[in-house]
């Protein structure tokens, strides 16, 4: 029965399994070619790519966390709230440990990262408990939590920005390594992306959250601890968000309760565009990473055309999302029909 569905060669197998990823690659390539033809000198510069690589990790990290939640069939709307709260607390910490001459002791930056990750983990666990134990639908739980975290951030700062940070932190994160080539932000992002790739593809945790996202009841009946998996997932998302907050802290050299509020929906857009199903159980990290690149390339590319308002990016962005969905709809639709119309049981 599946004889006819067998792919012919390895290449087409690869394509069939990663159709979405291939489509994203095609769009990115098309855009790169377009930029090469129209604005080669302004776009293809080292500094341009370095700038992009230092900017996208902010929301890229948050999107990775949202992806994990969406694989379980949930969502995380509190990423930006967590990022800001973590950044504010870290900013307080950095100011507190600053030396009298404005420099930072050697332990400060690692400790700041540890602190931010701990904050992210705690807030993420809070989300996870609301979702798993209290059974609030994830969209509402993380929405409420987001408001709450932002509220705490406002109360802590009176709504003002925490600035005048010791300069050492921003300098360290904004520097470039490996022969002054690779921005530190990119290193952080790559490290986190690799860890998540490993978790999803090589560990039992990954297998389990994909199955949990596919069918939570069946997961429970297979002896998985759904609650614990969910708490872990939201905790990871919280840590990713907090790291995103650390990058924001460095990029803006200040922290504030309302920084990056557009990222909430943008992260979801990225994740969906990356091929993760909002219903759960489906999606690859490669798709999400490509979607992050695509967003940054589009935005930076458009900025190279001074006559076009950079605000068009949001229009293009939404348009691309809708287009991809409609494309998926038509290809899934025809595939779905083929599958459905096959009789359920072949002859014994």
């Amino acid at each position: 029965m599946s004889g006819m569905a067998r792919p012919k060669g390895t290449l087409s197998t690869l394509y069939a399994g990663n159709r979405h990823v291939f489509r994203l690659v095609a769009v990115i390539l098309a855009w790169m070619v377009f930029m090469a033809l129209t604005r080669f000198e302004k776009f293809y510069t080292l500094i341009n790519f370095q700038t992009m690589a230092s900017q996208f990790p902010e929301f890229g990290l948050m999107a990775l966390g949202v992806m994990l939640c969406m694989v379980t069939g949930g969502i995380d709307l509190s990423t930006v709230g967590i990022a800001n709260l973590a950044a504010i607390l870290t900013a307080f910490f950095l100011k507190a440990v600053a030396l009298p001459d404005g420099g930072l002791p050697a332990y400060a930056i690692p400790a700041a990262f540890a602190l931010a990750m701990a904050v992210g983990a705690v807030l993420g666990v809070f989300n996870g408990l609301l979702v798993s134990k209290v059974r609030i639908p994830p969209i509402l739980a993380t929405l409420g939590a987001s408001e709450l975290f932002t509220g705490v951030a406002i109360v802590l700062t009176n709504g003002n920005a925490v600035s005048k940070l010791p300069i050492g932190y921003a300098t360290a994160i904004n520097s470039k390594v490996l022969g002054n080539l690779i921005p530190v932000q990119l290193i952080v992002f790559t490290a986190v992306a690799l860890v998540i790739w490993f978790l999803l593809n090589r560990t039992t945790y990954g297998v389990k959250i994909y199955l949990l996202g596919t069918n939570a009841t069946a997961a429970r009946f297979s002896g998985l601890s759904n609650d614990r998996l969910l708490v872990k997932t939201y905790m990871l998302s919280g840590i990713c968000a907090a790291l995103g907050g650390m990058i924001m802290l460095a990029n803006y050299n200040s922290a504030r309760a309302n920084y990056g509020s557009v990222y909430v929906l943008q992260c979801i857009l990225i994740v969906v565009l990356g091929g993760v199903s909002p219903a759960g159980g489906k999606g690859r990290i490669s798709g999400v990473v490509l979607a992050i690149f695509l967003l940054r390339l589009l935005e930076t590319g458009i900025n190279r055309f001074p006559q076009i308002s950079s605000y068009y990016i949001s229009l293009i962005w939404g348009g691309v999302l809708l287009l991809v969905m409609v494309l998926d709809y038509f290809s899934d639709y025809s595939a779905g029909r083929r599958l459905k119309r096959r009789p359920a049981t072949p002859a014994p």
Partner: peptide, 8 residues
């Protein structure tokens, strides 16, 4: 609904 993960 309880025993299998059909799309997996």
């Amino acid at each position: 609904s309880e025993g299998l993960f059909l799309p997996r």
